[in-house]
C-alpha cells in the first residue's frame, strides 16, 4: 500500500485508508481513482501531479 501526496497543499491519499469523505474505500488503489480526480483539498493539482511517497509515520 502506497501514499500519494499533492505537491501543492500536502494532502495525502493513503491507499490503506482510502478517503471516506470523498467516497474512496480503504484499500482503493490510487491508480483506481477516476481520471478526473483532483486534489480534494486544493483542487489545483490533477491526478498525474501526485507524488508517490512512503507511508507516513
Amino acid at each position: 500500500m502506497n501514499c500519494y501526496q499533492c505537491p501543492d497543499c500536502g494532502y495525502i491519499y493513503n491507499e490503506a485508508k482510502g478517503d471516506a469523505h470523498e467516497g474512496y474505500p480503504s484499500g482503493m488503489k490510487f491508480a483506481g481513482l477516476p481520471e478526473e480526480f483532483v486534489c480534494p483539498d486544493c483542487a489545483v493539482r490533477y491526478k498525474e501531479d501526485f507524488v508517490c511517497i512512503e507511508t507516513p509515520q
Binding site: D8, C9, D41, C42, A43, V44
Partner: peptide
C-alpha cells in the same frame, strides 16, 4: 491578493 490565492488555495 488573488493570484497567490489561486496558486495556493489553502
Amino acid at each position: 491578493r488573488h493570484s497567490d490565492h489561486h496558486a495556493h488555495p489553502v
